[in-house]
Nucleic acid binder design. Structure first.
Lengths: 368, 368
DNA sequence: TTTTAGCACTCTTTTTGTTAGATTGCTAAA
DNA sequence: TTTAGCAATCTAACAAAAAGAGTGCTAAAA
């Protein structure tokens, strides 16, 4: 099955491309007669038939049943996107609309991702998703511990690069004072700024315990415990921050006949609702990778998502990966349009940095 | 059509009840023969037939077509839940499981609601939803303003009753100092504690402006603007806090034949995805109401949700409404089970207050 | 008077059969 | 090497028939 691309003649490529595009357009198996008449292939249906038979032997096409036309196999789609897809030419109208939709009152990372997802889903008419950056790449640029009462305080964390603010409520089985919490603030900022989840090791923690002890003049055990629960909270927050996934336009799935099969739809919606599977699938992708990734059908994807394609790209802002955006739909997807939309979106977001630099009077929410 | 309940003979009630329950179980129209054999009604099918014909005349039953059995009309369901439903006797096993699932490491309101929704969906096998309390009933017990840089600061708000913490990032077109932001903190806490969204009026705002001016010794215009954007953020946060709605188990919809109709399913999923419609529908319910509300079919519900039932109940913790929980499913719903589950859940949550009172070592996240 | 058995009638669902249409693969001719 | 033509295969669509379910009504039984 592992055949060189060079094995395909130009005519085979032409025919394969025509079949994939016709199938994307119509959603039905395409036959030799249709190809001869509608696609501009200068051969008779018999010739096309022969080529199709060979393409099927090679694994690029499939035949649902004897008297049906051919549909592309996963391998066929893969070949199509890898070599044949002609870049979709986003019309100027669409591009400017996209820019308008995106630039609307945004600055905070969650907002950008949310909006990008909405725009992507609206323009492509497929289900879109967004992901936060991986936990390992998240660092904080500021910590703040706020005393609530003798048995609880709040940690506020501001993530670097993006203005995302997270808070966490910590309850304690022992008593603390406002002074101790304030000292905790100082220690956190002194020791943890810029550290990622992997950088926070025992020696860092030990050091923090010692410093808190010195600063607060409280007993060693109390300080150790306070640092311990605090670190645990920070750890959990960083993890969560790195695995948020959001969907937009789930209902659009229903517009495509491939999900009219309720079993498939059921599985797809479960996958979307549970999220973990998709997060795991996407976690294999290098975060600094600038390429648009395409997973067709069963290609190392979540097993449940056979027959579906995920197109996925990391988003950068000021050179830093702030997350990723993806589109999910049937294998029979308008690849050129989706690819163009995703590329353009990521470009526009990159360009947003200029807007962000300007101070402005909009208040932006930080959490939701 | 507006007939007294007293008009129904006991036998009619018996038969109506049997029909509703059989239809809930089977999902199909039920006929006289089935009732005679399976339900324990001591009459012949002919007698049952006569009664059924009369129940149909009275509006309690419907006949999809001549040779089909009867299905309950909305009015039939309504009568069933109002008078006939025998309280589902949650087995001890189920009850204890429920308690176990609920009590797991919870204290923060979001967690409680999220968990309750999951449990409700899992036990009933329908789609569950949760809502936050209405904006008008939300007050804050603490404000904290944290200086970030000359052009931005963060407001932290802690909602009363529940430990829900919200933060908001505010960007400014003019410069501020740490001292000014600290003064802002003081002013906020002095003036806004315990005030709901409706209580914050012009005179409160004017007073805050004056106090901030005195405290910070900054120029009047700057103080006025700072108060203004801050109030705007607080206002938005309170509003958001009061209209959060979350769903769990959407995929379960697909298990019921009434949603096999893709059109209906499509509408339902859109409704769920857009949320506003449901929020609006539920907003009509008195928040202090302790009753379990049942909306069957077209009864003053979102128009899109014809053929579906929403069961809905406010949740209280320490006597205060902390939100609400609901179940959505087909009209043909296992009412007794759903009602029992919801009632039991709300009771268990009420009882959680005891657990909450104890200090404990768990840290609980506050935002997500 | 109330209940029930029986039966004709209606409508749906399932089955079966038939036909028309689509598409292929193969063969033989161009 | 390409193409025309044709038999073979399969599906989709339609129609007709049969089976099944349930009712309403009538007349007999309790």
């Amino acid at each position: 099955m592992a055949l060189d691309i060079s094995e395909l003649s130009d005519r085979k490529k032409l025919i394969l491309k025509a079949i994939v595009e016709a199938h994307i357009k119509l959603g039905e198996p395409v036959g030799s007669k249709y190809l001869m008449q509608e696609a501009n292939i200068g051969y008779s249906s018999a010739t096309i038939r022969n080529e199709m038979a060979e393409l099927e032997d090679l694994g690029y096409l499939e035949q649902p049943h004897t008297s049906a036309g051919r549909i592309p196999s996963e391998m066929g789609y893969r070949f199509y996107v890898d070599t044949l897809v002609t870049q979709y030419d986003a019309t100027t109208r669409e591009a400017s609309e996209l820019k308008k939709m995106l630039s609307f009152k945004m600055s905070e990372i969650d907002k950008i991702l949310e909006n990008a997802t909405k725009v992507a889903s609206a323009i492509t008419n497929y289900t879109a998703l967004s992901l936060r950056p991986r936990p390992s790449s998240i660092t904080m640029k500021r910590y703040e511990a706020v005393y609530i009462d003798a048995h609880s305080y709040i940690i506020i964390m501001i993530a670097s690069g993006v203005d995302s603010v997270k808070t966490r409520n910590v309850k304690l089985p022992y008593e603390v004072t406002p002074e101790l919490i304030s000292a905790l603030s100082t220690v956190l900022n002194k020791n943890l700024l810029g550290l990622s989840i992997n950088d926070i090791n025992i020696s860092v923690i030990m050091n923090m315990e010692r410093e808190l002890e010195e600063q607060s003049a409280k007993e060693q055990k109390l300080c150790a415990e306070l640092i311990s629960v605090t670190i645990k909270s920070i750890y959990e927050t960083m993890n969560e921050l790195g695995s948020e996934i959001k969907f937009e336009g789930v209902n659009r799935l229903l517009e495509y006949p491939e999900y009219k099969n309720l079993d498939k739809l059921q599985k797809m919606i479960s996958t979307i609702e549970n999220k973990e599977d998709i997060i795991r699938a996407v976690s294999t992708i290098d975060q600094s990778d600038d390429e648009t990734k395409i997973f067709i059908g069963s290609e190392n994807m979540v097993k449940i998502m056979d027959d579906s394609t995920l197109i996925y790209k990391n988003l950068k802002l000021n050179g830093k990966t702030i997350g990723a955006i993806g589109i999910i739909g049937p294998c029979r997807m308008d690849y050129s349009k989706v690819l163009a939309t995703i590329d353009q979106l990521s470009e526009e977001i990159n360009r947003l940095s200029d807007i962000r630099a300007l101070p402005n009077a909009n208040n932006e929410e930080s959490d939701k």
